[in-house]
Design a binder for these strands. Structure first.
Lengths: 336, 336
DNA sequence: CAGAATCACTGAATCGATTCATAGCCCGCG
DNA sequence: CGCGGGCTATGAATCGATTCAGTGATTCTG
């Protein structure tokens, strides 16, 4: 059933080495032979066995991408960017979800290591880079995605989340809002804590303004809806007049929840701004203001960093840490 | 650098066979030996080489999933369902995008075959199942996803798209609308043509009602926006009074485009219904009516069919074709 | 025209985990 | 004491593509 190079070689009347050459370096083989071998391949329906090839090569032609949540269109954009870039290099990308859970992140990294991937692109769940270090020691380079690494050992692509947080908060303050709220979580995610901190700094510079933190379990639409309940449950007087959501999914959930209550108008009573500027943000009930990040570019850059990466070259730190700037996108949810 | 079972065996003072047993059948090995081997594994930082394992096994522990568009939340739900189900069986899922292009579908299937995946779940782009047949002959079973197979050779999970199309159209007709339009494409996609045909049948049963077809290149938000332009460019009198979009992405694009024009109100001037009921449909500017499909369940069922599938058992056709029923979800975009 | 260089091809060795026939050991039972 | 049977462990053979030193044959060069 399984057709191997040996079978092909036999029916073409050549050696296995020649078959391999036809497959990998057709120019090294006379065209007559190429034709004979091709014919045998077609007749037998031969398909290369990638496992054998990889075993010999010692390395696969695949890149592992570990993201927090593929359901977040932001990450699926990142994935698309990475895939397109990798494809041009003849590599494919394997995508794994962590659902923001450390255990799943570890399990997926283990699987990638077993597969001897050419490298991994990771949005780390926590602050623990030990496993990545071990993988690097085993010859598997890593690039941190959507996260600046203080650690010079790993290249990274990120967007300045402090700046993004500041942009969002400053925008809300300029509207005259003073009782800000930040919704998102878990705070252990760097993205979340940095955006919050950026916002807090902006608020600190504005006398009379406050910002309150409401934690969520994760960064999904559902978590946003739950956060909305906690807001609507309060007295109108103690409610925030502006909410900055850690990402657009949370923001969309909040929007639904707040409007559903019937008492709260957006942006009149509560201004709302999200983060990521996913496609659906513009199409929301109240079109959502957001902080835009160049998602595809992030994915593509990560791949480039990975490929330009010499595992044991600790040098050239400068060009191995790319930081993009976020951009404010104003829509109806923060109008007026 | 590369640590192999041989190295582990050596430092643990046992044979390679024993190391393999510790890895795969620890109960067959005395606990003292297990401990010694484990210790060696930890000390050396040994990680199994999956390529070697697969080569020996002749088959990988991975399932390939080929979908039309991962950016469509419907498919990412399907993927999630498949992943969760597969994980319980100790399998992982590789996801590949076709962007609705035949060539990409073929390329990805080839890659999957080279990897000797345990099976593939496919939403075929066209009607050509030859490649799938060849793969089956090579021992790689396939399950058709979101598509009924007339072909008894392949198991399938689908939702009745004729029924879905009918549901959507009947709903619009019940609102009193008579000049219907269907927007979507390419028509070569079974999902598109079936939904259209279901709608046409409903329209045919309603005297005085018509349905017009507007094709799009693909099923994205952007295509929806473009379709909207073609509607807004017309005289008010010749515009449809209801639009049925082939999926929610198209519907959301249409919605944005129609509202942007300023002249058209939804649902007053044009009622709008989508398909899939993705999460974002409920959060749209005008919450979107839609036809719901059990996305995760489809993914999970596909995996089950695959695993229960004996490649050369042509029998038991009945239980190998699962068809779920779609469900109408009414929201503001078709109110009144 | 000898010797060098080029070309097309060969086939054994290799990657690393798993398998399986085999061997050694110990215990218990007749 | 001896034999069967249960444990535990062994290590050569295997999966299939690739590599690379080497063989012949042909063409080139001074």
């Amino acid at each position: 059933m399984a057709v191997s190079v040996r079978d092909v070689a036999e029916t073409a009347g050549v050696s296995v080495g020649t078959v391999s050459n036809v497959l990998n370096r057709p120019d090294k083989v006379s065209s007559a032979t190429v034709a004979r071998v091709q014919d045998a391949i077609d007749r037998l329906g031969f398909v290369r066995n990638d496992a054998a090839r990889q075993l010999r090569a010692g390395r696969s032609r695949t890149i592992g991408l570990v993201v927090l949540d593929l359901h977040n269109p932001f990450f699926s954009e990142v994935a698309r960017g990475a895939e397109e870039r990798a494809e041009r290099e003849g590599l494919s990308v394997l995508v794994a979800n962590t659902d923001e859970k450390q255990a799943r992140e570890a399990a997926h990294l283990d699987l990638f290591e077993e597969q001897r991937v050419a490298g991994v692109l990771v949005t780390p769940t926590g602050d623990d880079l030990r496993r990545l270090r071990r993988m690097r020691d085993h010859g598997i380079p890593a690039v941190l995605v959507d996260r600046e690494s203080q650690d010079s050992a790993f290249a990274s692509v990120a967007v300045d989340d402090l700046e993004g947080g500041r942009l969002a908060a400053e925008h809300l303050l300029q509207l005259g809002r003073r009782r800000l709220m930040f919704a998102g979580g878990p705070i252990s995610l760097r993205q979340v804590s940095d955006r919050l901190e950026g916002a807090q700094r902006a608020v600190a510079e504005c006398p009379g303004a406050t910002i309150e933190f409401v934690g969520t379990e994760a960064l999904t639409v559902e978590d946003g809806r739950r956060a909305a309940k906690r807001i609507t449950a309060r007295d109108a007087a103690t409610r925030p007049d502006a909410v900055f959501a850690a990402n657009d999914l949370i923001a969309l959930g909040l929007l639904q929840g707040l409007l559903q209550s019937g008492e709260i108008r957006v942006p009149d009573d509560v201004a709302l701004i999200g983060y990521d500027d996913i496609d659906f943000a513009a199409a929301a009930v109240v079109p959502l203001s957001s902080i835009r990040q160049p998602a595809q570019l992030i994915g593509a850059t990560a791949v480039e960093l990975l490929l330009g990466l010499d595992v044991d070259a600790e040098s050239d730190g400068a060009r191995r840490h790319v930081v993009y700037r976020p951009e404010l996108v104003v829509r109806a949810s923060t109008a007026g």
